[in-house]
């Protein structure tokens, strides 16, 4: 909350020109009929996603050449708001010319990116992102049909939010893909938790097997672990920048440099030092140290010695380092 939030959002003004244009004049709205497709020796796939009771429903039509698996034509029908129609329209366009196997790799991010006027400005406000997620889901459903993945297996997905029919897998993927950090963001992207709210956390009017708060915590923990593992691997391979290290890695790295280049000289003078803390501080990384033995109280500890320590660390680890004795 701040100045920009004091009056209500002008939702429609945040749409890109492409979204507006596609809502006003969808290019690929319509149907593809079985008899026409048969005449051409192709295969028709028609998949539904969403429901009118949830406020959004889309039906995707693919005409697929069975020899090449290439989607030669695609159309859609949509019950929904402007962004739902615009997302559906651009989604069919992204499918045409691709093989089914390629099309299934189209994500909601691709759909939303294709609707942007410039690459750095989102095409729709966050609460409208679910429209592009739906486009992504309907493609997967159509691909499942074509590739003869047992439709049962789709229905047996673990549904976390019944109202919006959002699966555990979708929620996990959306958290990962978009680096979501709050339950509210999950709701914006997937609609999960936007209706009866039972799936947000225990204590709602319906008991659930999975709750968004737990899923979010689990995925975030996995993401952190992966990040740590990646940092450890990179560190082992000597490929990591000091700034990207975990705190423990940073402490180890600093100690190693001190051990190799500094400590012996301090000990020779009857002193020593220890690293107390490492904190990022805007453009600096502050390393707090404490002098021990003869070093504490030595005049040079705040001038020449300090300069030598800082220069060495800067040279070996990062130019952003500042050393602060306490």
């Amino acid at each position: 909350m701040a100045k920009n939030d004091l009056i209500g959002a002008s939702l429609w003004d945040e749409y890109s020109n492409k979204v507006t244009d596609r809502m006003n004049n969808p290019r690929h709205q319509g149907e593809i009929f079985e008899e026409d497709v048969k005449k051409r020796g192709n295969k028709l796939i028609v998949a539904d996603f969403g429901a009118e009771s949830c406020g959004d429903a889309v039906r995707l039509y693919w005409e697929v050449d069975p020899k090449t698996d290439i989607i030669v034509d695609s159309k859609f029908k949509s019950f929904g708001c402007g962004t739902a129609i615009a997302s559906s329209d651009i989604m069919t366009e992204l499918c045409v010319g691709k093989t089914v196997q390629e099309a299934v790799k189209i994500t909601n991010i691709d759909v939303e990116m294709a609707l942007r006027d410039d690459p750095d400005t989102p095409a729709v406000p966050a609460q409208k992102m679910h429209c592009s997620v739906m486009a992504y889901d309907v493609i997967k459903k159509a691909a499942g049909q074509y590739l003869n993945v047992d439709s049962e297996s789709f229905e047996e997905e673990i549904i976390v939010c019944e109202c919006a029919r959002v699966s555990l897998k979708t929620i996990q993927e959306v958290i990962r893909l978009n680096d979501l950090k709050t339950v509210e963001e999950i709701t914006d992207y997937t609609k999960a938790g936007g209706f009866c709210k039972s799936c947000i956390k225990p204590g709602g009017h319906e008991e659930k097997e999975y709750y968004l708060v737990d899923i979010l915590a689990d995925v975030r923990r996995e993401m952190d672990e992966e990040k740590m593992k990646a940092a450890a691997d990179a560190s082992a391979a000597g490929e990591i920048k000091f700034e990207d290290m975990t705190l423990v890695q940073q402490i180890k790295a600093v100690d190693a440099v001190i051990d190799e280049n500094v400590r012996q000289f301090l000990i020779m003078d009857g002193g020593n030092m220890e690293v107390i803390d490492i904190k990022p501080n805007d453009e600096y990384i502050d390393i707090y140290i404490r002098y021990l033995g003869a070093c504490s109280g030595c005049a040079s500890s705040s001038t020449g010695t300090l300069y030598a320590i800082e220069t060495t660390l800067k040279e070996k680890l990062s130019s952003k380092i500042r050393v602060l004795p306490i």
Binding site: E31, I32, V46, D48, E52, A57, K77, F79, Q145
Partner: peptide, 13 residues
């Protein structure tokens, strides 16, 4: 005309 509720071709699965 755009709406899925008024579509004629049924889903294929």
């Amino acid at each position: 005309a755009i709406s899925s509720s008024f579509a004629k071709q049924a889903p294929t699965a």
